[in-house]
Amino acid sequence: MRGLGPSAVQPAVVRTGFVNLLGTQEDVEVVGEAEDGAQAVRIAAETRPDLALLDIRMPHKNGIEAAREISASSGGATKVLMLTTFGLDEYVYDALAAGAAGFLLKDATFPELLHAVRVVAAGNALLAPEITNRLIAEFVHARASRLPVHPPADLTARETEVLTLIARGLSNAEIADRLTITDHTVKTHINRLFAKLELRDRAQAVIAAYEMGLVRAGARHR
């Protein structure tokens, strides 16, 4: 796995510590370290890492803008993991909507950081740590109270079921088992609902499901 960052984590000694610790892992190669958001975008464009670890609050270009640009320029190939100071940082939802695949508190332990990096790189960031699902639920619940409720477009009943199960944290295999269908059929439903709702990844699918009211904040995930 090739990664960028952490970017703009303050103070600099903390950022350097993260880089050094990540560098001790055989399956992780740190290809760049940035002091601010603008530099992170430039380095990501040059190195095309598998994952970028960004601070949600950065000078010159904040984490939301950087995440959006990195995700867009890489066509979604570079996954973005955001670091935030507080569990209820007001910008977390916007960061996820901008293309970030997940987020982690800055006071997380190194094993937690390493786990999150690997989970995000595998494309399952929002659906792995339970705390991530709880925080997303809180943000979307607050956001949804200010937004009109959108019906599930022209989704079929089965596609709506699949979207709901994605938001509850189930993997493709678990969805197949729950609905008694094949993995291939699950992938077909996911591809179709992603196309209908113009979703880029599972992160946006989770957000869409909450905003549609298919899943309630604080509800059980299984």
Rank of each mutant, 00 (worst) to 15 (best):
R192Q: 14
L54V: 06
Y93A: 07
N172C: 07
Y91H: 09
R134V: 07
F139W: 11
R118Y: 00
E174A: 07
D177Q: 13
G17H: 13
R143V: 09
V80A: 05
E69I: 02
A97F: 02
D27I: 13
D201M: 12
Q204N: 10
T84I: 02
V31N: 04
G218A: 05
A153R: 15
L54S: 05
R143G: 06
M212V: 11
L147H: 15
E174K: 03
I207S: 06
V30F: 01
L53S: 12
H184Y: 11
R216T: 13
E198A: 14
A144V: 06
L113G: 03
M212L: 04
L21W: 10
K79Y: 00
V19K: 15
S171K: 06
D55W: 01
T188Q: 14
P111V: 02
F18C: 11
G213P: 02
R42D: 07
D94R: 10
V117I: 14
T85I: 04
K187S: 15
L83F: 06
K106Q: 06
R118Q: 00
A97L: 07
G218I: 03
V9K: 13
M1K: 13
E112N: 10
A97P: 08
I207T: 12
L127W: 08
T132S: 08
K196T: 12
Y91S: 11
P6L: 11
T85M: 03
I70L: 03
L88A: 02
